[in-house]
């Protein structure tokens, strides 16, 4: 098959594997993701060991029947990994998406490419397809390492239902990284100056990934004091809900604000399927979907919009405009 899309895809894959910057960025991102899982798994293992030695001590004191096992769930160990993919992954995706266009503009090869019988849409599709393959490989490897870390370091084998939930969360991660890559590709092609595209990309990243979620988190009563406001006041869940019913306007504002960030949609959906959000821990896929479909729809919509823009604005007349 020699369609221009596949020709571009093959060239970009070859180029990426020889590009030290791309390899370094992906390796760095993967390292922090893996480290967060390994550290969490080691902490999990320590809790299990503590529990087992506690059980042993209680058994020797003849009180084993009173010991209740701690509630430990392996997928909750992936909280840090998702947060790193959300924050570090998105900026790596922005740089990779930007470099797909920037390297052609800087080398002067765009004029050459557009003098061949190929269209900008084929070029955009081929380049983005190569990144889709790269992100897929990265996510698969990270998923395998996550499972291995949880099993080998944490000492617990996730059930098949948990593996399915992990696969769903990893699929969200792939969509999220692809969305930022396509967005940045579009931006670099759209802007007359590459420096402008990079600055705008970083500002959007700052607002969407850091500022809005941070404001939302700060407004959350659970985050106002360590451990949560209501827990520290020893207020149980029904009472908490009764209190919060008087602050519905505040909660709606907070929720609406967070809904403006695609990163928050990714985080909410991933946290729900991984059971990091207590409400969804050990729940069925159907129940989680019932609550999360809007977040997933936003994520799919964001990806579709970014890909659409990247392909639509990858045309010669946009890319060859003079700075």
């Amino acid at each position: 098959m020699n369609s221009p899309t596949l020709v571009f895809c093959r060239k970009e894959l070859r180029d990426a594997f020889r590009n030290r910057l791309v390899l370094l960025l992906i390796a760095g991102m993967s390292l922090v993701v893996v480290l967060s899982v390994v550290v969490a798994a080691a902490g999990f293992h320590a809790k299990v060991v503590d529990y087992q030695s506690y059980v042993k001590a209680m058994q020797s004191a003849g009180q084993a029947e009173n010991v209740t096992a701690p509630q430990l769930f392996p997928l909750q160990l992936l909280r840090g990994a998702i947060e790193y993919l959300e924050i570090v992954g998105s900026i790596v995706a922005i740089i990779i998406g930007y470099s797909l266009t920037a390297k052609e503009k800087n080398r002067g090869t765009l004029r050459l490419l557009f003098s061949r019988p190929v269209g900008g849409a084929s070029m955009a599709a081929g380049k983005l397809l190569s990144v889709a393959v790269i992100w897929f490989a990265v996510i698969v490897v990270l998923g395998a390492i996550m499972l291995a870390s949880v099993s080998l370091v944490g000492g617990i084998t996730p059930s098949s239902a948990e593996v399915i939930k992990l696969v769903i969360a990893l699929a969200f991660s792939w969509m999220y990284l692809m969305m930022w890559t396509a967005f940045s590709y579009w931006l670099a092609g759209r802007a007359r100056r590459l420096s402008t595209a990079l600055v705008v990309g970083l500002i959007v990243w700052l607002v969407v990934v850091l500022v809005i979620p941070q404001i939302g988190d700060t407004m959350d009563p659970d985050n106002q004091v360590p451990g949560g406001l209501f827990k520290s006041l020893q207020v149980d869940k029904p009472q908490e809900q009764a209190v919060m019913a008087h602050f519905s306007g505040y909660e709606t504002t907070r929720n609406d604000l967070e809904n403006t960030s695609i990163s928050k949609h990714y985080e909410r959906a991933s946290f729900a399927y991984l059971g990091i959000k207590d409400k969804y821990n050990q729940q069925s896929l159907g129940l989680i979907w019932r609550d999360m479909w809007a977040n997933v729809t936003w994520l799919i919509g964001g990806l579709a919009a970014a890909l659409g823009l990247a392909v639509a604005y990858g045309k010669k007349r946009h890319l060859l405009r003079k700075a």
């Binding site: 070859r14 180029d15 080398r107 050459l112 061949r116 019988p117």
Partner: peptide
């Protein structure tokens, strides 16, 4: 024009040849 430094001469030419059909 600078072409693709990370690719070999043959890889560069194969790329452009395939783009030309």
């Amino acid at each position: 024009v600078e072409f693709y430094d990370s690719l070999s001469l043959e890889e560069n030419l194969v790329f452009f040849a395939r783009l030309s059909g």
